[in-house]
């Protein structure tokens, strides 16, 4: 949590895990693509890691098919292609611990937070609007 600012709202309510209080940061990376099918997800994650390595406060938002990136039980592809689950495991090492998930995307796929490999904060539709406003830069993948 080094250098991570805790927002006032969260500080007053330590129990809130699912909330729409504003998470602020330098860079918001939105991940909207599933693992394996294309390189979009990997490129988004790589961008997040590079930004974090340069000291930027990075927030990840998993939306749409991007929520599949967090599923437990992922493996390499049938021909041994590396997946992205290894990168997800590394996020904490880069101090990227603000993982937001679009609750709508999760629900519409019949998934819940128990299916995910890391603790996340659920965002409902209006929360996404606040996230975009509270970050200096937004990159969509």
């Amino acid at each position: 949590m080094s250098g991570q600012e805790t927002h006032d709202l969260e500080a007053r309510d330590p129990d809130s895990v699912v909330d729409n209080s504003v998470t602020a940061g330098d860079l918001l990376v939105i991940l909207r693509h599933a693992p394996h099918g294309s390189s979009w997800l990997r490129e988004g994650l790589d961008t997040a890691l590079v930004a974090a390595a340069f000291g930027q406060r990075v927030t990840l938002l998993f939306a749409g098919e991007g929520v599949l990136a967090l599923l437990t039980g992922q493996t390499a592809g049938p021909l041994g292609q590396k997946g992205t689950h290894g990168v997800i495991d590394m996020l904490a090492m880069y101090d990227i611990d603000t993982l937001m998930v679009d609750g709508r995307a999760l629900k519409s796929r019949g998934l819940c937070t128990d299916d995910l490999m890391l603790p996340v904060t659920l965002v409902e539709a209006d929360g996404v609007v606040s996230l975009l406003q509270s970050h200096r830069l937004v990159l969509n993948f």
Binding site: R32, G64, A125, V128, V129
Partner: peptide, 12 residues
């Protein structure tokens, strides 16, 4: 494309 759904949901 359904990306419009994501875009509209993210608009203030």
């Amino acid at each position: 494309s359904r990306v419009i759904d994501d875009a509209l949901a993210a608009m203030g």
